[in-house]
């Protein structure tokens, strides 16, 4: 299941929704991406813009692709948009499987694909103004290694 939302998410609640009452899940991987300080420049906030409609379609496609590649019993993707501050959560990926390898790999695949396919754009707000975040070649390389 996927969600694109401005609101924060609650990891323990999402986990409970996926796993409560189930005894077939042997491995759960959760990944949370957060806004962090930049180091070189003081980051006041980051605003995520997205393409409503296409974002949901892309996330559903990415999740379906993970479901066909790995034996997942459940998965969850939440991606936030809007203005976020350092320490705020941006993205949540949960993968559940019988064994750890599928859960680890599927979570990694989902994040690599999210980074390079999901139509979101980040603009960073620092003391010196606003800057659009540039895509990283290493993210493309990470997504490419999964093939298509």
């Amino acid at each position: 299941m996927i969600s694109v939302q401005a609101e924060p998410f609650d990891l323990s609640r999402e986990l409970a929704l996926l796993t409560d009452g189930r005894t077939d899940i042997g491995a759960i991987v959760t990944f949370t991406g957060r806004v962090r300080d930049l180091g070189e420049a003081f980051l006041k906030a980051m605003t995520l813009e997205h393409y409503p409609g296409m974002t949901e379609r892309q996330l559903e496609e990415i999740e379906n692709e993970a479901q066909t590649r790995w034996p997942l019993q459940a998965s969850r993707i939440i991606h936030r948009y809007g203005r976020l501050e350092p320490g705020d959560d941006i993205v949540l990926v949960i993968t559940c499987s019988a064994h750890r390898q599928a859960a680890f790999e599927a979570a990694s695949f989902l994040m690599d694909w999210l980074k390079t396919k999901a139509p979101f754009w980040k603009v960073e707000e620092t003391e010196t103004g606003e800057t659009w975040v540039e895509a990283k070649a290493e993210d493309d390389a990470a997504a490419d290694k999964w093939g298509k």
């Binding site: 991606h79 993205v91 994040m111 980074k115 390079t116 396919k117 979101f120 754009w121 980040k122 895509a135």
Partner: peptide, 10 residues
């Protein structure tokens, strides 16, 4: 038809 720069989500 949508035009946009390379995506930077995640």
């Amino acid at each position: 038809i949508a035009f946009f720069p390379p995506v930077t989500g995640g």
